[in-house]
């Protein structure tokens, strides 16, 4: 089905205002209000005067932060809301699949994460632009979703081609049909979508050509330690890269019991901080910054691959954008995947 872009935004605003479909929150990307970041986007709860930017590229804030907040109560669990999140990009969607495996597995389920996942409907959109740090194609991803969404929107001129991906998506489409007149796709609409997608992929390939590398990630642990020491020189250990990463989910659990009922709270943590793995008594396996720096790369490309069957990088590039030391993530990965001499 085809929906007019403006009609769709009007529908989203109505959903928020009148709780259509029981949605208590409709979350969309908007342009950053900082004039120096004109081409940056942030998630916000839609308002009557919002000007959502559903396409473009991924937001500054990872989608993860809307499912796994920086601080949440585990017992008693915090309240959750039925939500509609629109404008989800493929890199963030891929990250969510990893988080699902980490936090909703056969052994244990994070109660808050599961609640948010169940109560949220996801509308993804194809990327129509790229940021200088975007590199999904370098890690086997694509700048559009072909699975895992409830609804997907692909821009064609001033309209969107809607694709249904789940029962939740079907229900939402039925709501949309009640509010807005939808059209049938024209003969070459699907071709137009393919063409736009291909164009973005080509732009990504071109942008990332200088960072191409052999993707034998098991070689990362063999990289020369001197490389890591050199690469970590500009790292100030702020933890920005992990805090903004679409797949990082490390937490600490604190007890905040004051009365009869036990209270447990989890807060975001970062493996880049010195105290991260320190045990009682003061021992830590990674006392040096370069060791923690290296650990982050090994976690993403080696450990997470073993744990979840997929590397923990979806190519969003946020870690490069946020880095106070201006460390280029892609360059570090590329350099350290080249085996030391004699080990090729």
């Amino acid at each position: 089905m085809i929906v007019n872009a403006q009609d769709f935004i009007t529908f989203l605003k109505k959903c928020q205002k009148e709780s259509i479909g029981g949605f208590q929150q409709v979350i969309v990307p908007r342009r950053s209000s900082n004039p120096e970041e004109e081409k940056q986007y942030l998630f916000e709860i839609i308002r009557a005067d919002s000007q959502p930017v559903l396409d473009a590229f991924r937001t500054i804030d990872p989608l993860r932060s809307l499912f796994y907040f920086s601080r949440e109560n585990l017992i008693p669990v915090d309240k959750t809301k039925k939500r509609l999140i629109v404008g989800v990009k493929a890199c963030d969607m891929a990250a969510l699949q990893i988080l699902d495996r980490a936090l909703i597995n056969d052994d244990f389920v994070d109660p808050m994460y599961q609640n948010w996942r169940e109560l949220t409907t996801l509308i993804s959109t194809d990327c129509t632009d790229i940021s200088p740090s975007c590199h999904c194609t370098l890690v086997g991803g694509k700048p559009y979703n072909d699975q895992h969404y409830d609804l997907n929107l692909s821009k064609i001129g001033q309209t969107y081609l809607i694709t249904v991906g789940s029962k939740k998506g079907e229900e939402l489409l039925n709501l949309l049909k009640k509010e807005v007149t939808l059209a049938q796709p024209q003969g070459d609409d699907k071709e137009k979508v393919k063409k736009s997608r291909r164009e973005i992929e080509l732009r990504l390939n071109k942008q990332n050509r200088p960072y191409e590398r052999p993707n034998q990630y098991e070689n990362l642990r063999k990289a020369d330690l001197e490389n890591w020491i050199e690469d970590a020189k500009n790292c100030v250990g702020c933890g920005g890269c992990t805090n903004i990463c679409s797949t990082c989910y490390c937490i600490i659990v604190n007890d905040e019991t004051t009365g009869a009922e036990f209270v447990k709270v989890r807060s975001q943590d970062s493996c880049q901080l010195n105290g991260y793995a320190r045990v009682a008594g003061g021992d830590t396996p990674r006392p040096k910054m370069y060791q923690r720096f290296r650990n982050r790369y090994l976690c993403k490309f080696d450990y997470m691959k073993s744990n979840f069957g997929a590397i923990g990088c979806t190519g969003c590039g946020r870690c490069t954008d946020v880095c106070a030391g201006e460390i280029e993530f892609r360059a570090v990965v590329q350099k350290n995947l080249q085996l030391p001499k004699g080990q090729e």
Binding site: A102, F108, Y249, I251, I252, V253, D269, P285, N307
Partner: peptide
């Protein structure tokens, strides 16, 4: 192996020993 096991359920990643969770 008693590493820093914050959550005990393989969710906090603090106790990771390579591909293994010390807690799980």
């Amino acid at each position: 192996m008693e590493k820093k096991m914050y959550c005990g359920i393989g969710h906090c990643r603090h106790c990771v020993i390579g591909k293994y969770y010390a807690c799980k």
